[in-house]
Nucleic acid binder design. Structure first.
Length: 873
RNA sequence: GGGCGCGUAGCUCAGCGGUAGAGCGCUGCCCUUACAAGGCAGAUGUCGGCGGUUCGAAACCGUCCGCGCCCACCA
């Protein structure tokens, strides 16, 4: 025990009166890392606890959203580590295909170059170079935040190991015929020059213009409407509903397509809504997904009229115009021919945009690789349906099911250079060979590898097990798969979570990648507005961490973390958390200055005062509460419970009451030192997962322990004392009541007032010294004149306020209180007089009302007595 | 068009069947020897509107109004 004391890293006098986070946080973090606290041992006998980081894009730096997410994950893993789990928080980053390629291309642009100037190899090399610079920035920010990740296991989606995992997965899916190549209409971004998947398209209502065109002539004509007139060059049919009598005579015939030399058939297709517009639809199979399907059903040719830049390729007057130029040019030309039957009219409709660059998507017929999601999505849905994976909050399950149950095949090829290249080789005679890891690609004349890369989310989908060494059967994989929980934003439920579910279940023989999915919301500003650079309300988390400390930022974020709900944050709130950290700091300082200790066992209950028993009881209740909230991912409630317990109960009451005890000395003081030590020790440990830095300094100073990071998580001893709790509640009531009186009377807080206390026979008798101290009451002295008497809870506090007291003010106050008490009595009486209530309400509720009535009656009597004793003015 | 969610104190949000809560902000007094990044005391709400269920509704049901989000092949 004595040598432990010598390890104290700080003596009370060394602690300054204010906590200065910036000076210590960095040092503490590096010490934790050096000591290997965050490393995870696959050979450990401890129960594993695994969380993977949602890998940040190498393109950027961390924003508040990351800080938020990391706070939650760090809190979870720190607690589990303290609970004795072999804990792995897996760090790493995502290569973020399109995003990264765009960033580097933009950089090249500034140098007046394009990626084609460097060539594929040179460009990829350049991206790697860029990644090496940017990636360090992110890890620096994570250290600053205090993320307890296993740095020795850091992974990157383009690592050799993870690339091997990607290749293995591709081949496995290919051989199971769950990957195939097909020509379909895809979402094409004419700026990124690549296909993107359905969920990478963001729809928004755009203003468009609907124009009605007449195809054919005379009786053999039909009017169609379009917002994309330029596509008419590629029309290969007009479709009408099979039952539509208006057009029955035209079905099977042809109409002349204006501006072209072609005539196109009129086909009947049930897809057409006869109620909509004219009931006739132009069909452009090469540039519209619906039209493509109609085309398939009727054997229509798909005639592409635009290139990858969305520029018209059809020879003639429109060739070389981009889609928008072509649109107006074609409308003008049609008007000249008298083909416009209804002028353009404004039309708001939903238009798809590239989620990366916001360019309007151009549906385009193209040969791409696809994942056949049917069986994968089924398994992913079932795993949640049958309870093997739980989604928090549960309301999100519905969104998840809607998506996995209605999923279209996933387009996974991208016409980019940065990413995992598709491991397929094409032979001179049309052979197709999928090459697995370690296999030699076919050699010889005419063999070439597919030039496309895979969707970024293909590799992210493998993250929960690729980071653990899959496809090798590693010890880490055996130990840490499946992950315990996935913590991520609801915004990537489809992008990432669902894909991990599909891939995890498939690659890991039906074992889902995690037991629980805990979805958090998005960080917003203090008015609930979305944070964005353009709106000017985006905040760099580093700024706030520098100003207020990482703990303050973390605590604020955790405190706003209601499950699945967006979390607003404002600078004043971070300040408030900084104040809390400082409060903990000073409370611990006080404790150390007064000899608080954690040495030796807790005193037996017989030696404890009611105050001690009360705070220990509350301490244990808090432990139980915090555990329950953590297990339910209720971070806001964890933080709130700790905030209020620490500040309102420990600091404002227990510490204040202990001052009298310490002053008096004796056994009670010795006991209080140990109890205060215990309460702070446990409270600091409870707080550590959320505010790791300040708790580390204080806990080591208080206990002499090596580090709170590896301390035991507090356990509820089961100790409860409701009698003591009631006693302290009464004490608080008396003190508050008299303070209120003092304040109403305009007495200075420090002014000493002679007082006589009559506490005999009340539970407050042992607290006389504390009451006198907290209320600044001095002994009554010889010439004591009781001018104000406050009866509270059976006790009586008589104050000598000769010459000072303002009886009128007090009378008003008392009358107001009387009114409130009478109202309370009336309400309670009415309830208790209601037979239906008595018959139907549960016993405890009725008891409660009876209690209220009794209290109201007692209050009325008391207040009336007080008023009666006031001298009349 | 379908689905989900939200309207509670000035602001941001908890509460989701038994006397309206928190943080910040606000008012007054105070540098009381841990802390002014603090202490003490205090004010503030017909819980979006209207109906209904219930002994009892902020909470449950219906409806209306106002927001937000997700999904969808709206020519």
């Amino acid at each position: 025990m004595t040598d432990k004391t010598q390890q104290h890293s700080a003596t009370p006098t060394e602690l300054p009166t204010q906590y200065a986070p910036a000076e210590v946080e960095g040092k503490l973090y590096e010490r934790w890392v050096e000591r290997g606290y965050f490393e995870a041992d696959e050979n450990s006998a401890k129960e594993p606890y695994t969380v993977v980081i949602p890998p940040p894009n190498v393109t950027g730096s961390l924003h508040l959203g990351h800080a938020f997410e990391h706070t939650l994950i760090d809190a979870l893993t720190r607690r589990k580590r303290m609970q004795g789990h072999e804990t792995l928080w897996q760090p790493g980053m995502d290569h973020a295909g399109i995003a990264t390629q765009n960033v580097v291309e933009r950089e090249l642009g500034k140098e007046g170059k394009s990626r084609h100037d460097l060539g594929r190899e040179g460009f990829v090399e350049r991206v790697w170079q860029w990644k090496n610079e940017s990636g360090g920035q992110i890890s620096g920010q994570m250290r600053r935040l205090g993320d307890g990740v296993a740095w020795n296991r850091e992974r990157f989606t383009m690592d050799e190991g993870l690339s091997k995992a990607v290749q293995t997965m591709f081949k496995k899916l290919y051989e199971d015929e769950l990957i195939y190549r097909a020509e379909r209409i895809i979402n094409w971004c004419p700026r990124c020059l690549t296909a993107i998947s359905d969920i990478e398209v963001e729809y928004q209502d755009d203003d468009g213009e609907l124009v009605s065109l007449r195809y054919g002539d005379g009786d053999e004509s039909v009017v169609v409407a379009t917002t994309r007139a330029e596509t008419m060059l590629g029309d290969t049919a007009v479709a009408v509903h099979p039952d539509d009598e208006r057009y029955a005579h035209l079905v099977g015939r042809t109409v002349r397509l204006p501006l072209t030399e072609r005539s196109i058939p009129v086909v009947a297709d049930a897809h057409v809504d006869p109620e909509f517009g004219t009931g006739a639809v132009k069909v452009t199979p090469a540039h519209d997904p619906n039209d493509f399907e109609i085309g398939q059903r009727h054997g229509l040719p798909a005639l592409a009229v635009m290139d990858e830049h969305a520029v018209i390729t059809v020879p003639g007057p429109f060739q070389g115009l981009d889609r928008l130029e072509a649109r107006s040019a074609i409308v003008a030309a049609l008007r000249a021919e008298g083909r416009i039957v209804a002028e353009k009219r404004p039309y708001v409709h939903s238009v798809g945009h590239c989620s990366r660059c916001k360019t309007t998507i151009e549906p385009r017929l193209s040969m791409q690789w696809w994942v056949k999601v049917g069986p994968l999505a089924k398994a992913a849905g079932d795993a949640v349906r049958d309870g093997r994976v739980a989604i928090h909050p549960q309301e999100m399950e519905k969104r998840y099911f809607d998506w996995v149950d209605n999923l279209h095949d996933w387009c996974i090829s991208r016409q980019l250079w940065w990413g995992h290249r598709i491991p397929v080789w094409y032979g001179p005679d049309g052979e197709v060979v999928c090459v697995g890891p370690g296999e030699e690609p076919p050699s010889g004349a005419g063999w070439t590898q597919d030039t496309d890369v895979l969707d970024t989310w293909f590799s992210s989908g493998l993250w929960p097990f690729s980071t653990l060494g899959w496809p090798e059967r590693t010890g880490s994989l055996a130990k840490f798969y499946p992950n315990s929980v996935l913590v991520t934003g609801y915004d990537i439920l489809f992008f990432w979570v669902a894909r991990m579910m599909m891939f995890g279940l498939y690659a890991m023989d039906g074992t889902p990648p995690f037991h629980t999915i805990a979805l958090h919301g998005m960080v917003r500003d203090q008015f609930g507005k979305k944070m964005s650079k353009s709106f000017g309300n985006a905040v760099n988390p580093l700024d706030w961490m520098d100003k207020y400390g990482s703990d303050a930022l973390r605590f604020t974020l955790a405190r706003g973390a209601n499950p699945g709900v967006d979390v607003p944050i404002g600078e004043e709130w971070v300040q408030g958390s900084r104040n809390f950290a400082n409060k903990i700091w000073n409370a611990t300082r006080f404790a150390l200055m007064n000899g608080a200790t954690v040495e030796g066992p807790l005193p037996v209950p017989e030696r404890l005062s009611a105050t001690d028993r009360w705070i220990l009881s509350r301490l244990n209740e808090t432990v139980a509460e915090v555990d329950a909230f953590y297990d339910d991912y209720q971070f806001a409630k964890v933080s709130d419970a700790l905030f209020h317990f620490a500040w309102d109960e420990v600091f404002d009451w227990y510490v204040e009451l202990s001052k009298t005890t310490f002053q008096a000395g004796g056994d009670a003081a010795e006991v209080a030192k140990r109890v205060l030590g215990e309460v702070l020790d446990v409270t600091l440990r409870l707080l550590h997962p959320i505010v790791p830095f300040v708790t580390e300094i204080l806990w080591t100073a208080l206990t002499g322990g090596e580090s709170v990071v590896i301390a035991d998580w507090p356990a509820d001893s089961g100790f409860r004392d409701t009698a003591a709790a009631g006693e302290i509640a009464t004490l608080q009531q008396v003190i508050t009541e008299v303070r209120r009186f003092r304040a109403d009377q305009g007495l200075q807080p420090g002014q000493r007032v002679p007082a006589r206390l009559r506490l005999d026979g009340t539970p407050l008798a042992p607290h006389e010294a504390a009451i006198r101290q907290l209320l600044r009451l001095q002994p009554e002295g010889e010439a004591f004149t009781s001018t104000a008497t406050l009866p509270v809870a059976g006790a009586e506090v008589a104050l000598d306020l000769s010459g000072v007291i303002d009886f009128e003010a007090e009378r008003k106050r008392l009358e107001k209180d009387l009114g409130a008490a009478e109202k309370e009595r009336t309400q309670a009486e009415r309830k208790l007089g209601n037979e239906a209530f008595l018959a139907k309400a549960p016993e405890d509720v009725v008891d409660k009302i009876r209690g209220r009535l009794a209290k109201a009656v007692a209050d009325i009597e008391r207040i009336q007595g007080q008023i009666g004793r006031l001298p009349s003015a």
